[in-house]
Computed example of a mutant assay.
Amino acid sequence: MLLIKNLIYWLILATSIILLFPFMLLAALMPHGAHKTAQIWVKILNWSLKHIIGLKYRVIGAENIPQSPAIICAKHQSGWETLALQEIFPPQVYVAKRELFKIPFFGWGLKIVKTIGIDRSNRREANEQLMKQGLARKNEGYWISIFPEGTRLPPGERGKYKLGGARMAKMFEMDIVPVALNSGEFWPKNSFMKYPGEITVVIGRPIAHQSGSEAELMAQCENWIEARQTEIGGQGPFAKKAV
């Protein structure tokens, strides 16, 4: 039965993005129009996850979301957070590898909604792209979402936190909002299957951009996120087994 539910979810995902794509192109002619259309797609998928798969989520710390645009630095365990963060936070753009832009419909949509695309094979160029495009998005009124570890990691694993988010925070004078989550325990990396349950998202108090150097800001962010990961881990079928 779960396999059938997942097949239905993927069918909804594929058909909805193709059907909505022409409307996104038209909406892109208006300020923030493409984002509003993309939000419809996000809501369709989040509804499908909740009501078809049975995968829900709860948010702890929503009161910590500031009024002004900030840098969202989140744990990255699955594709789930790329959808859910758009529903939890105000309009935002992601930092992503620009190879994703080549994926039909999905990648084209990322390009249209002004995703910050970087070339991860060229560190210097990636930093320049991050700063140039990030400043443009800030000036357009968007929040910026970044996964500081750079890639999805299985539950219980900890990657190297890169300084890109802190660098943008300092340069653009935007505070950092740290986010912990345990999505990978229900939606494993590169898995066709998603599993029912309740994902926990924890939002921390903003870290002021003027409260330290780039390294100090990211250290604060990392320490807070990893402490929360320990607290919320162990809830789903793919949680890291205790040794």
Rank of each mutant, 00 (worst) to 15 (best):
G204I: 00
M193H: 09
A215E: 14
M30D: 05
R205P: 04
W47R: 07
S213I: 04
E63K: 12
T82C: 06
G197V: 03
I103C: 02
L130V: 11
L2N: 14
Y57L: 13
A34M: 12
H35Y: 12
L29T: 01
I146Q: 00
G212D: 00
S191N: 09
E149H: 01
A239T: 02
G117M: 03
S16G: 05
L83T: 04
I17W: 04
P154F: 08
T200L: 13
M193I: 10
R120G: 01
A70H: 12
N127G: 09
R152D: 03
L19F: 09
G204M: 06
S211C: 01
M24I: 15
W108Q: 11
P155S: 14
V113M: 08
A70G: 09
M24P: 04
E87P: 02
M171Y: 13
K194T: 03
Q210I: 03
K162E: 06
A208D: 14
N64S: 02
I203T: 07
A74G: 05
Q86W: 08
W41R: 10
I176N: 06
W41T: 10
I199S: 07
A28W: 13
A215Y: 10
I18Q: 02
G150I: 00
A38F: 09
L49S: 11
G107I: 10
K97R: 14
V243E: 14
I52W: 07
F172D: 10
Q220K: 15
T115H: 06
M168Y: 07
Q129L: 00
A169W: 05
V243N: 13
K97I: 06
E63P: 04
L3E: 11
W41N: 11
Q229I: 15
E149L: 02
I103K: 00
G107D: 12
T115A: 04
W224I: 03
G197Y: 07
